[in-house]
Computed example of a mutant assay.
Amino acid sequence: MSAVLKTVNRILLAVLGVVLVVLGGAVLAVGLGLDPPSWWIHHGRDDVLLGDAERTRWRDEGWWWPTVIAALAVLLLLALWWLTAVLRRRRLTEVLVETGDGEGALLRGRALEAVLNGEAATMDGVHRAHTDLRGRRNAPEAEMRLLLEPHVDPGTALADLTEGALTHARDSAGLASLPTEVRLRAARHRAERVN
């Protein structure tokens, strides 16, 4: 998921959550007997959310139903766009490898991920490696997570990864670049009891 989509997703969820909490809390407060302000939509404990007058006020106006239907259609389209953006396949299934003769070959994304994981895991002090490929098949991007032993310097591990596994993967696939986001984390080992 791109950073922009993550940001939009978080903002929309936060705004929706705040609106629901404020409205629900206010209705609950009025229902429990607190006096609402004069501008609030509820005026007391026995008040209904929408009375007959509010529900039927615009029914006879010619613009009312087309406006309601258009607004609901826009909300539905936005909700569908949001759902497809969140559920869209994020992993890259294949990478286009340049063969040098103007042709290309397709390499499975999982195969390239496995090679990157295997080579990164053989580096000194790397406990475990995990790679996900993103982007387009002719311009892949990698997201790597390395679990490092406590004694390993993160800068050294990153330099070894860049000069080793990432360079080999980029060169072997004939890619001009392989942008990579690397997340480093230290492995935690349980203390063992000595008798």
Rank of each mutant, 00 (worst) to 15 (best):
H151Q: 12
L5G: 05
E141C: 11
T156R: 15
T167A: 14
L107Q: 14
A191E: 10
I69S: 04
G51C: 08
H130N: 13
G102K: 09
R183V: 10
D101I: 03
L12H: 06
S177P: 02
A73L: 15
D47N: 01
I41Y: 00
L49R: 02
G155M: 04
L72D: 00
P140G: 01
P37C: 10
E163V: 14
R145M: 00
A191G: 13
V194F: 08
S177R: 15
V19T: 07
D35P: 09
G17C: 02
L34W: 10
R88F: 06
D160G: 02
G125I: 02
R145H: 07
A157G: 12
L75G: 12
L80P: 04
R193L: 13
D124Y: 05
G44S: 04
L34M: 11
L87N: 08
L12Y: 07
L184Y: 03
A159Y: 03
E54D: 13
G174K: 06
G135R: 01
P154Y: 07
E94C: 03
D132E: 04
L16A: 14
V86W: 14
T84P: 04
V22M: 09
R88P: 03
D101P: 06
R57Y: 05
V182S: 03
N138T: 11
H130S: 15
A71V: 01
E143W: 05
R185N: 00
A29G: 10
H168V: 00
W58G: 02
A114S: 07
W40H: 08
D47K: 02
D171R: 09
T93K: 11
G125V: 02
N9A: 07
G125K: 03
D47C: 11
A111N: 07
N195Y: 05
D60S: 15
I41F: 03
D35H: 10
R128S: 11
W81G: 05
